[in-house]
Amino acid sequence: MSPRPEVSPPAAHAGSVGGRSVHEHITDAVKAPDLIRLDGNTVLARFETMKVYAALGAVRSLLRRGRIVPGQTLIDSSSGIYALALAMACHRYGLRCHIVASTTVDSVMRAQLEILGATVDQMPPSQSLRLDQERRVRHVRALLADRPDFHWMRQYHDAVHYEGYQECAELVSGALPEGPVTVVGAVGTGASTGGLAQALRASGRAVRLVGVQPFGSVTFGSEQFNDPDAIIAGIGSSIPFRNVRHELYDTVHWLDFRHAMAGAVGLLRQHAVFAGLSTGAAHLVASWEAARHPERLHLVLGADTGHRYAERVFSRHAEARDMAGLRPLPIASLAELRPPWSVMEWAGRAAPPGARCADEGAAVSVSTVELTS
């Protein structure tokens, strides 16, 4: 595969047909969100996969700085969405891709990765997602020991993943009316919510950042709880992530699986939008926030589509609760935190003790909390 020469964000299009852009690569087509008004003061940024911004921005920056070169192999551990984004970025820039995949990666995702040219090492079935992640990290380290020429992307810890969201912020800011905005989204690795809010604030816009977390995650201090239904991929973590910058967040909501499911099914039922579980959680939170702050525009981040949740969530739509009857418990400190839904004014506090990265060794032994049934 021959590398493409450009490593800066391209112009919006190389030409147009009927007023629509003609893109040079599929990543340009899928990275930008569709902006959909849900209610008077709520807009959904619906992505096919939001992590394309993170992967493209990181790869371009690393190429420009000479930290990687065309033909080199990029490696990372992933449960699926970042893996696909990284594989597409490697396809675009003539790089090789090696994914150490979770046991939860399905056959459709694996086929896409392999056809794109990625090497996929998938972990065997595991009794727990924690064990699955630990196996993946050990496998990455073993590969790096044998192949020091590989570049480990470290999506959870390398701040280079923030850079792509500058482009996203410019697109969103240009489409939304002037004035204050509240960004609502799953915290995950921290790069999407943090990167977008940081870039919007740098442009001069007043931004309130609302993060969404599962119970059982160390990121915002809920690790003492266990949600028996939970599998929130990419929303929380069982160890610290360096890319989560706690001081950027104004408010944090913690939701269990049932509430996230209510939001996802409600989004499809009310607005015909088929989106993932993290988007459902953000939708529920934004609906509550928007009712309390009608003077502000609320931007909901819809990180991916609902296809990988078809069986685990949407086939059970009859079980979903009505969003209108759901309310969070307002708390003043983490000592008051309670399932199934709590909200706290975080107000830029520092990371709780369990979310602080003591050293690089702690930072790279990653185990994500995923949300499933």
Rank of each mutant, 00 (worst) to 15 (best):
R147E: 08
L268K: 07
A89D: 06
D158I: 05
A347W: 14
E319G: 02
V187T: 05
Q72E: 06
G71D: 01
C97H: 10
V273G: 00
V212W: 03
R321I: 04
V212Y: 03
S79Q: 04
E24P: 11
L38G: 03
R349S: 05
A282P: 02
G221P: 08
S16P: 13
H151G: 07
P294I: 02
S78P: 01
Y93R: 11
G185S: 04
L209P: 06
S61D: 13
R201E: 07
E345R: 15
R64W: 12
E134F: 10
V137L: 10
Q155H: 09
K51V: 06
R64Y: 11
H151R: 12
D256Y: 11
L74G: 04
V183S: 08
S102Y: 12
E223I: 07
E336Q: 14
R37L: 01
L74I: 06
A32Q: 06
H98R: 15
L326A: 00
C357N: 12
V137P: 10
V313C: 12
M261I: 10
E360M: 13
H271K: 08
E48T: 12
H25R: 11
L35Q: 00
Q155E: 00
Q112G: 14
V7T: 15
A159K: 11
L200Q: 14
G179P: 09
L255P: 08
I75R: 03
S8D: 14
G276L: 05
A45M: 06
V108C: 08
I232P: 04
L113C: 03
G71I: 01
T219Y: 12
S287W: 06
S222L: 13
T104I: 13
A206M: 12
P177L: 00
Y156P: 00
A11V: 15
A281S: 10
G164K: 00
F314Y: 12
G179K: 05
P70G: 03
L143S: 02
P214I: 09
P9V: 13
H91C: 02
D304Q: 03
E336W: 06
A87S: 11
A169P: 03
V105T: 11
A159G: 12
F241Y: 15
T104P: 04
E114T: 13
V183R: 05
R201C: 04
A89N: 02
R136H: 01
L337F: 05
T103S: 14
R356W: 12
V218G: 07
G80A: 09
L301R: 02
N243C: 11
P148H: 03
L86V: 15
E247H: 14
V69W: 07
V181K: 08
R64I: 12
G80Y: 09
G263W: 06
L267D: 02
